[in-house]
């Protein structure tokens, strides 16, 4: 359904130095540096998949999404989605996709949400009957009932995001691109959004590609992740695979009865220590987590233990080290 082959994109960025003198100079003469946003990226996505697209800021996530949604033209490479090349057949192609930019609204700011929806219906030429059905489904699953008559500027971020997602689905697209859909949302809204994405994927078979910095989004939704760093595709596979390859460290936070003897467990390093609390980093390749806890409880009288998996950012940092990026 989606085939991306060897896509590269380079941006020319004007070099700017601070100071008035340089600002004046740059009026006449500019130096540019080439930033390679994407280098030879290829992947294939099948219908009905939910793919999480992750990577640190500036890695090239948004650029890829923008190329796939026909906004940007890549320098090299091909991209065929549903038989279309997005930037060539833009008008025909974009009928089949929905796009949500988490940081940018597609609703008209000053008018009630319902008015925005109706204009979108006209833009996409959705037949009245179909529009009614879709609206009924969206209103119910996203709980939009009371929001429709409210001007967008009065909505909270969570409410707005629900409306944004609804707006991008009015024309029943078969592919949905979500660029940071949970950014800035509270826990309840995040869960609602995730739940909804799951529902439309299951019930309508919508293929979902989402970018995010929230690993919980990925774990809740994506059966597959693509990890990109500095313009290169670093990993393509499922979450467990990524964890077992790179996320082998666990953090144990232990509270115990006062104990002045320092803790010593082979294979684990002490991150911080007080007579009542210790934080340990355990490499599960060297010592099993159960073994580490057993040893720990032999040394101190445990009150509470919390085990945290490594955050995705750490895994990425570790990957970077491995790839020497």
């Amino acid at each position: 359904m989606i085939t991306v082959e060897g896509i590269s994109k380079t941006f020319l960025v004007a070099k700017r130095q601070s100071g008035l003198g340089h600002a004046l100079k740059s009026l006449f003469h500019r130096e540019y540096t080439a930033v390679e946003a994407l280098q030879n990226v290829s992947f294939h996505i099948a219908p009905g998949e939910i793919v999480g697209y992750i990577g640190p800021n500036g890695a090239g996530k948004s650029t890829t999404i923008k190329i796939m949604s026909g906004i940007l033209v890549p320098d090299r490479g091909s991209c065929v989605i549903k038989g279309f090349t997005p930037w060539e057949d833009r008008v025909k192609y974009v009928k089949h996709i929905g796009v949500v930019f988490g940081q940018r609204s597609q609703l008209w700011w000053d008018v009630p949400v319902a008015d925005s929806f109706e204009l979108l219906r006209d833009i996409y030429n959705v037949p009245q009957a179909e529009y009614k059905n879709t609206m009924a489904l969206l209103t119910e699953t996203l709980d939009l009932g009371n929001l429709l008559q409210t001007p967008v500027r009065q909505l909270s971020l969570g409410q707005r995001m629900r409306c944004e997602i609804a707006a991008s689905l009015l024309h029943s697209p078969s592919i949905l691109f979500l660029d940071e859909p949970t950014i800035g949302l509270d826990a309840v809204s995040k869960i609602a959004v995730r739940q909804f994405i799951k529902t439309i994927n299951k019930e309508k078979g919508v293929t979902v590609i989402l970018t995010t910095h929230d690993m919980n989004d990925i774990e809740a939704l994506a059966s597959r992740i693509l990890l990109i760093g500095k313009g290169n595709l670093l990993y393509d596979g499922n979450v467990q695979g990524l964890r077992s390859r790179f996320g082998t460290k666990r953090t144990i936070t232990a509270d115990y009865h006062e104990n002045n003897r320092p803790i010593d467990i082979p294979g684990a390093s002490l991150l911080s220590w007080t007579p009542e609390r210790a934080i340990l980093s355990v490499d599960t390749e060297q010592v099993m987590i159960s073994e580490a806890i057993a040893k720990l409880s032999a040394q101190v009288e445990l009150l509470d233990v919390a085990i945290d998996t490594q955050p995705i950012e750490d895994i990425i940092v570790q990957m970077y080290k491995e790839y020497q990026l």
């Binding site: 949604s69 026909g70 833009r90 974009v94 930019f101 940018r104 833009i123 996409y124």
Partner: peptide, 13 residues
Amino acid sequence: SGDFDRLLVRPRS
């Protein structure tokens, strides 16, 4: 502002 992105993902000229 980059809002032109929005226009490009709509199936109209």
